[in-house]
Design a protein around this nucleic acid. Structure first.
Length: 429
RNA sequence: GUGGCCAUAGCUCAGGUGGUUAGAGCGCCAGGUUGUGGUCCUGGAGGUCGGGGGUUCGAGUCCCCUUGGCCACCCCA
């Protein structure tokens, strides 16, 4: 049977696809908030000497394994796959590891201060404020162990939240000490937990031997009761680590950054040393209320094959920050609008040419399409947010003018000679 | 991964105990006003009732499976 283009033959409707589980599209006008947020972040950290880093979205899986074999992120949330060349790769679950890999690969001069805005992927069951693809604003600063850098990073992030209008943000700070302090503390903690193991929640008992620190951030009531009596890491810091932590606290106080010390704050990634911190929203009633967190990771560079280099950084989830802004009623979507809208009743030449002329001159302009009625075009002009409509009908075409209509003020409309339109608008926008 | 709730138009939602062509508001399109938006009036388009199977004379409604969403646990941004 020959092919037919008979219009009466209804083709089967194609299957409509949906975004994969745990992912989401960000469309206008909501996307305008994202643009503004990222731009504000770029400006804020750019002014402090941080430059943009663009990383690959996936890495060899070993890069991320350095986050710690005991972490959920590595054990069960990795989006890993084999490519056609049998390379074992994984989508980036967080920013730090791949930035550090890039640092080791390129050895930039120190200190190296960078920021990024990038998606992260974790194979988790989606929930409030939790997605399989989420987006992080992040910063990493490598090459100095100066505790004042910890202060700068924390303060800059706190200032950033404040600049968005957020007020109900709580900052928790802790110190994990040096890698040696951390190891010694893990032994002390393990011994303590082994002694009380029957009092722990069953799910937490198996963590004691291999990952005792994971027990500290359990939310189970039985475990929390035990943990309340557990030795605290801040009491087991070496002299150097204690001095570092003291300097950080003094710096935050000197700069008026409110914080509390949270000895149970261990964070989910094993590479942290010295300062760790977490910003939580008090306005978010969802279970996921951490909007940003990070810490020092002296030792991670070596683990990824580089020279001993200290570093500190944080990640802050864009979705959660915006959720928090919603909860506090701040940082609404800015109104996206153009200044000028071209209405054409003479077949399209005027719209095509005027729009191009003005756009090439840097004026923000939109126009109507499909030769629609004047009414429809005016409606589109109104929707565009434009302050001025340029109307070209037969009368204007004959007279060589454009009707310039004020859509927002009360100045009405009047004809302007066609080659004076640009100057006319520039004087008014 | 475990559990709970949910899925009807582009959006927000109605649709007792199963019963003729599935509704509203908003949005969109058109007309009223043959060259004027934002207000108003009138009309219209738009739905595989998430998907598949089953029960029934008959399913948006009941049952099973499945996919997805939301929420909690777990964990984290």
């Amino acid at each position: 049977m020959p092919a037919t283009d008979d219009a009466t033959v209804e083709p089967a409707r194609a299957q409509a696809f949906k975004a994969p589980i745990g992912t989401h599209d960000v469309l206008p006008p909501e996307s305008a908030r994202w643009e503004t947020l990222v731009a504000a972040f770029a400006t804020h950290f750019g002014r402090a000497g941080y430059g943009l880093v663009q990383q690959p979205m996936f890495e060899e899986i070993g890069v991320f394994r350095r986050m710690g074999e005991g972490t959920d992120v590595v054990r069960k949330e990795m989006y890993d796959f084999l490519d056609k060349g049998d390379r074992h790769l994984a989508l980036r679950p967080e920013g730090t590891a791949s930035v550090v890999r890039a640092f080791v690969e390129h050895r930039p001069t120190l200190p190296w201060k960078v920021w990024y805005a990038a998606p992260s992927f974790r194979y988790e069951k989606p929930q409030a404020g939790r997605y399989r693809q989420h987006h992080q604003l992040g910063v990493e600063a490598l090459g100095t162990a100066d505790p004042d850098l910890d202060v700068e990073v924390i303060r800059l992030l706190g200032d950033f939240y404040a600049s968005l209008g957020l007020r109900r943000v709580d900052l928790a700070v802790n110190s994990m000490g040096t890698p040696e302090d951390r190891r010694a503390y893990v032994d002390t903690l393990r011994s303590f937990l082994v002694g009380r193991i029957r009092d722990l929640a069953p799910e937490d008992q198996e963590k004691v031997e291999a990952f005792p620190m994971r027990v500290l951030d359990s939310k189970r009531a039985a475990t929390r009761a035990v943990v309340a009596d557990a030795p605290s890491i801040v009491e087991h810091l070496s002299a150097g680590a204690a001095a570092h932590f003291d300097r950080v606290q003094a710096g935050l106080r000197a700069l008026g950054v409110a914080f509390r010390i949270e000895p149970r704050l261990v964070r989910g990634l094993d590479y942290y040393t010295h300062t760790t911190f977490e910003f939580q929203s008090e306005a978010l009633d969802a279970a996921q209320n951490t909007i940003g967190g990070g810490g020092r990771y002296d030792g991670l560079v070596e683990q990824l094959g580089g020279p001993p280099t200290p570093g500190i950084g944080f990640g802050s989830g864009i979705e959660r920050v915006l959720l928090t802004c919603d909860a506090e009623g701040v940082f609404g979507a800015p109104q996206r609008r153009v200044d000028v809208f071209v209405v054409d009743l003479v077949g399209g030449d005027a719209a095509r040419d005027l729009t191009a002329l003005l756009q090439r001159s840097g004026v923000s302009v939109d126009r109507a399409w499909d030769g629609r009625s004047l009414k429809a075009q005016m409606k589109a002009a109104d929707r565009s947010g434009a302050a001025w409509a340029l109307i070209v009908g037969e009368d204007e075409q004959v007279a060589g003018v454009v009707t310039v209509r004020d859509l927002r003020g009360g100045t009405g409309q009047h004809p302007v000679a066609r080659d004076e339109v640009l100057a006319h608008l520039r004087a008014r926008i």
